[in-house]
Design a protein around this nucleic acid. Sequence first.
DNA 1: ATTTATACTGTATATATATTCAGTAAAATT
DNA 2: AATTTTACTGAATATATATACAGTATAAAT
Lengths: 202, 202
Amino acid sequence: MKELTIQQKKVLQCIKFYIKKTGFPPTRADICRELGFKSPNAAESHLRALEKKGYITIENGASRGINLTENTAEQSQTIPVIGLVAAGSPTLADENIEKHIPYQESLFLSDFDYFLRVKGLSMKDAGIMEDDLVAIKKTSEVRNGDIVVARIDDEVTLKYFQSSGNQIKLIPANDDFEEIYINKETEGFFIEGKSVGLIREN
Amino acid sequence: MKELTIQQKKVLQCIKFYIKKTGFPPTRADICRELGFKSPNAAESHLRALEKKGYITIENGASRGINLTENTAEQSQTIPVIGLVAAGSPTLADENIEKHIPYQESLFLSDFDYFLRVKGLSMKDAGIMEDDLVAIKKTSEVRNGDIVVARIDDEVTLKYFQSSGNQIKLIPANDDFEEIYINKETEGFFIEGKSVGLIREN
DNA sequence: ATTTATACTGTATATATATTCAGTAAAATT
DNA sequence: AATTTTACTGAATATATATACAGTATAAAT
């Protein structure tokens, strides 16, 4: 799809926001009000540009006859899938994002920030298998028994969390793997977040 | 929420369908066209009734100013969760439906009909744990290695599927459970569907 | 160098649309 | 038995809305 200008992006965002807020698309006048234009033709031209570039369709003659293209509608509702690379942290930086998948607000009980693609079988006995997508909420507030994403220097790992005092144990759910003992103040140690759910695509 | 009459349900369905099709709500005239009314006031009265009962809100003066209530909007996008009861089949009958959860069309690669709430640990080594929700597609076309929902008389069970000729093996993913051998033509045996995905709420 | 796209203001207008008023009739509720 | 709700037709109308036309100005593409 053709790139949008900054103004056109603003107009598209305005349409999305208006629909989310009211349930129906804006009129030309509504767009002018939201973005400070003084002529309805300003909105009209932008709409025609968005239509030409394939981001919306317009039903001629119909009031509020704006329809977001499939592609456009989904863009606002995706969540990144991040690969668990042995070296490197799961940040939201573009180079770490595997793909985007549709986002459903109330899919899990807690909200979450990204999906982590699982590599290896260290959490096998917790029912977390290779290639599963674990929903991660970014937080450092974790409790004993939580499944957490922990970073130790450049290593990122998914384990059970267990702490007593300053001592932290990262426990795998697989006898073939070793427990990791670490100190709270250890340099380079960091809790990225915790698991709040899981989805698997067969 | 107050119950709707048959006519009111038709009007509400019409609005939902129109929005799904065009991306924006219908006018009074649109509703008349879709449902065969000859006066715009027929639509108007129904809309006011739907508003009064809390299924929609109407922004006065705005064209197409119909907004589906949160509750209403979600109704069209939910998928049932069905408990795996030892006796009884996972049908879509009301009494078997545990709850409804929001539905995302493209959540898994294949579409699916309902979620099955897992009881027991017979598929533990396949990473399917107690209380997981397995996405089931209703079909009898299954292949060797698929995880299937099989019914034998009143027993419903989730197992690996393996067939050779007329002989069918239902294999658990847990050494504590026994394999089930059965014949294709056995009375009361039936493949309900197969697993196409899984979600877990921590 | 010329054309096209972007980014608007400002005016005008046909028509799309919500909404009111006047009825009729049957069913449900009080 | 009286009132309210449901379920419409039919006509009228104020206004909400899309959209065309006339300009101005700058940036980008050919």
